[in-house]
Design a protein around this nucleic acid. Structure first.
Lengths: 343, 343
DNA sequence: AGCATGTTTGTTAGCGCTAACAATTCCTGT
DNA sequence: ACAGGAATTGTTAGCGCTAACAAACATGCT
């Protein structure tokens, strides 16, 4: 008791403290912690007891420094306020945790390539072992694919134009199903309320819609365009309500469909009697719209989960796994779409 | 060129490499990196040039090891799929980034105290410097408040029963406003569709509703209860539609209000002519419901931002800042509520 | 017994960085 | 020209951990 370390509670215990208490070397403590073989059971027990007694917590920075593994994955998201990104993030986090990783999140402010690069760099500087990018804008994806990065990256969203490993839903397929369903109901053609032009999802859904129309020999009307929000759907709806001959509209997402429904209602156009509406996503609220929305369901959580699996596979498997995973969306029929009436 | 380090590209450059290239000691490189004073401008420039040339990235684990600061904050969230938590998370992340911190997220699977403790422990083991808990359940909060943790914690949500620093919205106040508004419209009383009993928000909103009713000498009807989802709102709506004498309903959130609207519509009860409905939250879709929803707006993003400021203040300021921040919600009037008609 | 084989533990050397101090250089005023 | 001080740079010693090797001990076999 000559020095200043008289107190017994001074600082957080370190491995050496545990070792001393258990009467072993610090390396043996490390072995117990990491489940190394060749540790005698009673030694292990003594170490474990010492750990409990001191409430010892390994220092992750020290471990990361020497192993060069941070146990952390990064996620770059676009607008995590939206239902889609939020759900994917949730799926990613759950999957990451069960695979033994932490998740560090960065939200993009704008969608240009520089922001993506910046976000990934930031994450890399923090020492993440891999990155999932939820950024389905064309600019973002092309930025990511030429990203100079030493860490593996997986994209989640749409588009298959990249070399990047990627998980996406069959947007084209889903859009085709929706359009085909409407056509089968007897509509002469189907209008489309698309998402922003620079989003991959938009593009793919629009393409699925257009292709199906063409294959059926139906005329292809001008697309209306929104920004995913109910507000933009409402505004587009006002325009559509003014158009003549519209009997069916396929919306690129459910939120815009909600706005569209509202505008149509205000314009006195009955859904589905006069106009049929189909959405995309199947958000939990879609079943309670007026009328309940026929839509195309996609499982965002699953999307996130699969993306993370892909990343972890790349990280641990070493060899390249299947690099493009596609998840099939599926139509759910409700009351917002019906047969074309007398025309 | 005798050893195996013949190649020039072998490994990631470290500080010593930069130092050698710039012709200085590694400490000077460190000084430049950390903006220490007393570095001659041209020395700084040479170092900076070397950093750029080698594309050097400081190793964050090494820095964290010696400084004992990880630049990382943890967030424990409940169901980040919900609009509220997702928005708060978004606000937190943005604020954290601009304050120079990373954000590591963990989603709770269940709401018992042990899960919260586990999540916080996990985060702490990872080395976060502080934690924001988005977990407005009573159990979670009481668990957090007796949390044995060496890191500062801030809660965001509701309730003021804890010693824990906390940011919340004036739920009681907002609920009172909504109820008072309905009463002023001439309704004899206001029914209430509450959230889960173990959520603080539920409790506070219910209390605000009840108190206002009592203060006005209005009868206090039995509360209906949902789980925040549109689905549960729909089911409650079915029950309410069967009740006699209901002319006004205050819903604890907008999603349940949506379900309620749907159920009322199906039951042939017109809103607002027969029954007035008011929600809480003002989600972006509320303006496009049928009819557009009168509701109480709360700014989730702001909530998250303030929580983070509080945490950072505690972390860096040292002294204890105001420990309970309250944000006022505000009513937004739309068309789902109107005067009581002839009774 | 005597040696190879295997199990269990300890010792040493960093990982890449910053803090603390030491050394050097550059200014001032006198 | 020279002391005194500031400005600028370098040197040394860890942070707490794991990897690699070394030592000690046990066991089986001929």
């Amino acid at each position: 008791m000559g020095t200043d370390s008289t107190g017994t509670e001074s600082r957080q215990p370190v491995m050496a403290d545990v070792a001393k208490l258990a009467g072993v070397s610090h390396q043996t403590v490390s072995r117990v912690l990491n489940g190394a073989p060749h540790v005698r059971p009673d030694t292990r027990d003594r170490v474990l007891a010492a750990i409990r007694e001191l409430d010892y917590r390994p220092n992750s920075a020290a471990r990361a420094l020497v192993t060069r593994r941070s146990q952390t994955l990064g996620v770059v998201s676009f607008d995590s306020t939206l239902y889609g990104p939020a759900s994917m993030l949730d799926g990613i986090e759950r999957a990451a945790r069960s695979a033994g990783y932490f998740v560090s999140v960065t939200s993009l402010r704008s969608l240009d390539g520089r922001s993506v690069q910046e976000a990934v760099d930031r994450l890399r500087d923090q020492g993440v072992e891999g990155v999932v990018v939820i950024a389905p804008q064309t600019a973002a994806v092309s930025a990511v694919s030429r990203l100079s990065s030493s860490v593996p990256i997986v994209a989640v969203g749409s588009g298959n134009q990249t070399q990047l490993p990627m998980v996406s839903v069959g947007n084209r397929y889903g859009a085709g199903e929706a359009t085909g369903y409407l056509l089968d109901l007897g509509h002469r053609t189907v209008h489309h309320l698309a998402g922003p032009a620079n989003w991959l999802e938009s593009k793919d859904r629009e393409e699925g819609w257009r292709l199906t129309l063409q294959a059926a020999g139906a005329p292809v009307p001008e697309v209306e365009r929104g920004d995913w929000s109910a507000r933009s759907g409402y505004q587009a709806g006002l325009r559509i309500a003014g158009l003549r001959g519209v009997t069916a509209v396929f919306c690129a997402n459910d939120h815009m469909a909600l706005g569209l429904l509202r505008a149509l209602h205000e314009a006195g156009r009955s859904v589905p009697d006069e106009i049929s509406v189909v959405g995309f996503d199947d958000i939990p609220e879609a079943a309670y719209f007026t009328p309940p929305l026929t839509t195309v369901r996609q499982d965002f959580g699953e999307l996130g989960r699969r993306a993370l699996e892909l990343l972890v596979g790349e990280l641990e498997g070493g060899t390249s796994s299947p690099t493009h995973v596609q998840i099939s969306p599926e139509m759910v029929l409700r009351r917002s779409a019906g047969p074309a009436i007398g025309r």
